[in-house]
């Protein structure tokens, strides 16, 4: 198994502290793809240090929802605050208008995102992938960024892969580099969009292990996942979505033990 050392966040100078207790606050979010109502009045809060796992059948809107949290998707109604700031929009005469690209980019620095398909930069080494944004976006000196990146790589068990290109790494290794890349920006919030869905079964464990460690170190996380074992063990709260709505939410013991809603029961019976 992965040679992982604890204290991943030590590499980036400890846990980045959010400015507010409510790191995510989504209020009555609506989104349509054409006639399709993909998010229907979604409201949710994520508190400092919480790990929230979002589950639900495919097409339920869970991926779309996390993508709205860093404005990779627009929303049509409602509002989303991350770290106390309206994300992607600003208020003008009581109406929400899309923010300037520069402001959106600035807000995204504080939100790490891990994708289903890793999306590592193919033309850069693992080290290059991790250093790119801290150096180019934050203006961190290159030596400092490299030190942090090497330390991060060591702590996700990839000390010997610094010079490897993504094409030379396994899926599980790529995803761990992707997590390190997101962490290098010292994010206040980490979003995971089905981080293990594109992985071979034997590689899922090594990625979940890193995520588990991050949760234990106090990182605030929103995770879209089908890994019920992970949700049961790591989540502070599990949110069940279907047809663009939050059906129910609660601590994993409650949601998995006594689901209140028929659709949750049905979904869990199929997946467990």
């Amino acid at each position: 198994m992965t040679q992982m050392r604890g204290d991943i966040l030590e590499s980036i100078g400890g846990l980045p502290q959010p400015d507010t207790d409510e790191v995510v606050r989504a209020e009555n979010v609506h989104k349509w793809f054409g006639p399709l109502h993909v998010l229907n009045d979604v409201s949710m809060t994520v508190r400092r240090g919480e790990t929230v796992v979002v589950i639900g059948p495919s097409g339920s809107g869970k991926t779309t929802f996390v993508r709205c949290l860093n404005h990779l998707e627009r929303i049509q109604e409602g509002r989303i605050l991350v770290n106390g700031h309206l994300i992607g929009y600003r208020e003008r005469r009581g109406k929400l208008v899309e923010d300037r690209g520069r402001n959106i980019a600035r807000q995204r620095r504080e939100i790490g995102m891990v994708f289903q398909r890793f999306n590592l930069f193919h033309h850069m080494t693992a080290l290059g992938n991790i250093c790119e944004a801290p150096v180019r976006v934050l203006g961190m000196p290159e030596t400092q960024a490299k030190d942090a990146a090497r330390s991060l790589l060591a702590r996700v068990g990839l000390a010997d892969k610094a010079e490897a290109f993504p094409g030379q790494l396994s899926g599980g290794q790529q995803q761990r580099v992707a997590i390190a890349r997101a962490l290098a920006m010292r994010p206040r919030l980490m979003l995971f969009d089905e981080p293990t869905s594109a992985l071979d079964p034997e590689m899922i464990g090594e990625v979940l292990e890193v995520m588990r460690e991050l949760a234990h170190e106090g990182m605030t996380m929103v995770v879209v996942s089908h890994e019920m074992g992970f949700a049961r063990e790591v989540a502070d709260r599990v949110v069940m979505m279907d047809h663009g709505q939050i059906i129910e939410e609660g601590p994993p013991a409650q949601l998995f033990g006594q689901p209140q809603h028929e659709r949750t029961r049905l979904f869990l019976s199929k997946i467990l």
Binding site: Q107, R108, R109, M113, R117, N119, F121, R181
Partner: peptide, 22 residues
Amino acid sequence: DPGQTEAAKSLGMGYGLLMRRI
């Protein structure tokens, strides 16, 4: 791959950096 753009955006890169570096 559009995923490259999304990853770069999620790291806070603006249009210029995104085009030039990624």
